[in-house]
């Protein structure tokens, strides 16, 4: 790669190389057609230039065989592009089961992140090389987009729902983190760095928790919130009283009182906390108060992390 005038950004994830391969394929196909069309135009303009004002060229109505050829060839090429792009896209957005999960909240104009060890960060994210990392994203206000060019990946952080993005860094170093979705006055300042560390160094880094801040892991914080906010009174995992049981809830099928069934994913659990009347579980009364405004997005994520852990 030309260091002084780069045209391909740093490749810092396994996926980056795959995306670049596809990109180069697309450039190859495009260059071929652009040169073909350009050359034909120049050749025809020169070869068939008007020599006399009385020129009356013969009419050509069409040429069926030629037209079929130039319909079918592009069709085949775009189908290749479609399949290649879709297969890679599914790889891009299906995190492996063992991925380490980091919780990310976007807000005007900063990124707030919490590691599994409990350590918090703002606008700078430390991750280990060679380990898959899954980010769960949401937003406190408007839509943001978590974009790391060196990983060739990007995902919107949407208020009111969870999205995920994952990557496996292959090279240590520091790489740009941008907000890619326009989010207001200081949109272009909503950026930071991804620091890829050697795995052991990351573990040390993540374990260095500021004792003054008494940082808890997301799981511990979620468990404490579950008690403090009074969830225990109705959803006690031990007894299962007034409210539906939350043990083993995550990703299970829930029957609602209107006969529908839903999968209890993160979005469902979040909605049940902030908007409890939206989906009433079959056999229960609609009596739960809303927690909207009492918990911020990070705390909601922590409670959900705790509920997910109950099996």
């Amino acid at each position: 790669m030309n260091e002084r005038f780069p045209v391909i950004p740093d490749q810092a994830s396994a996926l980056a190389r795959d995306v670049d391969m596809l990109y180069l394929f697309l450039i190859g196909v495009s260059a071929f057609f652009l040169i073909l069309i350009g050359a034909l135009i120049i050749w025809f303009v020169f070869r068939f230039r008007r020599t006399s004002d009385t020129d009356r060229p013969a009419e050509i109505h069409g040429h069926t065989k030629l037209e079929i050829v130039w319909t079918v060839i592009p069709l085949v090429l775009v189908l290749i592009m479609f399949v290649w792009g879709a297969v890679l896209f599914f790889k891009q957005f299906r995190p492996p089961a063992d991925a380490m999960e980091i919780l990310v909240t976007g807000k005007q104009w900063m990124w707030k992140m919490q590691h599994p060890s409990g350590r918090w960060e703002i606008n700078e994210l430390h991750v280990p090389v060679g380990r898959p990392v899954k980010l769960t994203l949401t937003s406190e206000d408007v839509i943001h987009s978590f974009y790391v060019p060196a990983f060739r990946t990007k995902m919107d952080a949407v208020p009111g729902r969870y999205t995920t993005v994952w990557f496996e860094p292959t090279r240590t170093g520091s790489y740009h983190l941008f907000c890619a979705e326009y989010c207001g006055a200081e949109h272009s300042l909503m950026k930071g760095w991804i620091h890829v560390l050697p795995a052991e160094e990351y573990d040390d880094w993540a374990a260095r928790i500021d004792p003054d801040l008494a940082e808890l892991t997301p799981l511990e914080a979620g468990e404490r919130l579950f008690t403090e906010m009074g969830c225990m009174a109705c959803h006690n995992p031990a007894s299962g009283a007034l409210g539906p049981n939350v043990v083993g809830l995550y990703m299970s099928e829930v029957r609602l009182d209107d006969g529908r069934t839903v999968i209890a994913d993160e979005d469902y659990i979040r909605q049940s906390i902030v908007e409890p009347m939206a989906k009433i579980v079959e056999g229960y009364q609609p009596i739960m108060p809303t927690y909207r405004g009492q918990l911020d997005e990070s705390q909601l994520m922590q409670i959900i992390t705790y509920i997910k852990s109950l099996e």
Binding site: S30, W84, A180
Partner: peptide
Amino acid sequence: GLTGLFLATMAVNVHVHDT
């Protein structure tokens, strides 16, 4: 039009979207 193909290609779109 040709660069439109880059954008229809999902995996490449993810990287260049909003750039």
